[in-house]
C-alpha cells in the first residue's frame, strides 16, 4: 500500500471516530433532555440549561461532522453535466470541485477565528443563568472547522496524487460522487 493510501485510510478512520464521538454526544444530549423533562414533570426539579447545551452540541455536530460527510462523499453535488462527460472529464470536474471546496472551507475557517478571538479577548460568557464561558463551545466549534479545513486540504492532495498516478478508480472513491449505499 502506498503512502497516499495509508494517509487516506488514516483520515477515514479519524473521521469515523469523530462521527462516533459526535453521535455519542447527541445521544447524551437526548438522554439529558429526557431527564430534564421528567424532572420538571415530576417536580424533582429541572437540571437547567438543556436548551443551551443542545445548541452547543448542535454547533459541534455542524462543524466536526462536516469532514466526516466530506470523506463519505455525502455533501450533495449536482451531476447534471458531470454525468455526460467521459472518465477524464469527470476526474477533472471532481478535482476542480474539490479544490474550490477546499478554498472556500479554508476561507470560512479563517473567518471563524475572529469569533473565538473576540470571545477570548472579552472573556465572553453565555447570556444565560449557566454563564458558560463561551470559549469552550466556540473553541470546540472552531476546532471543528479547522479540522474540516485540514481534512479537505489533505483530501485535495490525495486526489491530485491519484490523478497524477492515473488511478481513476481510487480518485473516484476518494473525491468522486458518492452515495449512501457505498458505505
Amino acid at each position: 500500500m502506498s503512502r497516499i493510501e495509508t494517509l487516506e485510510g488514516a483520515l477515514r478512520r479519524a473521521n469515523r471516530l469523530v462521527a462516533l464521538v459526535l453521535g455519542a454526544a447527541l445521544v447524551a444530549t437526548a438522554i439529558f433532555v429526557l431527564i430534564d423533562v421528567i424532572g420538571r414533570k415530576t417536580g424533582w426539579g429541572s437540571l437547567g440549561g438543556s436548551d443551551e447545551i443542545s445548541g452547543y452540541v448542535m454547533a459541534a455536530v455542524a462543524s466536526w461532522g462536516l469532514a466526516c460527510a466530506l470523506l463519505d462523499r455525502a455533501h450533495v453535488r449536482i451531476d447534471l453535466i458531470r454525468q455526460k462527460l467521459n472518465e477524464t472529464g469527470q476526474a477533472v470536474m471532481d478535482i476542480f470541485a474539490m479544490i474550490v471546496t477546499n478554498g472556500v472551507v479554508l476561507l470560512i475557517a479563517y473567518q471563524c477565528w475572529p469569533v473565538l478571538q473576540k470571545t477570548i479577548e472579552r472573556g465572553s460568557r453565555a447570556n444565560t443563568p449557566l454563564e458558560t464561558p463561551l470559549w469552550i463551545p466556540q473553541g470546540i466549534w472552531f476546532a471543528g472547522w479547522a479540522w474540516f479545513a485540514l481534512s479537505a486540504t489533505l483530501l485535495s492532495l490525495i486526489g491530485i496524487a491519484y490523478l497524477a498516478r492515473g488511478e481513476r478508480a481510487k480518485l473516484n472513491t476518494s473525491i468522486g460522487l458518492g452515495s449512501e449505499l457505498d458505505q
Binding site: A19, V27, V61, A62, A69, D72, A74, H75, V76, Q183
Partner: peptide
C-alpha cells in the same frame, strides 16, 4: 446509526 446520523446531519447543516 450514529455515523449515518452525523453524515446526513452535517450535509444538511452545511
Amino acid at each position: 446509526a450514529l455515523h449515518g446520523t452525523i453524515r446526513i446531519s452535517a450535509m444538511i447543516m452545511l
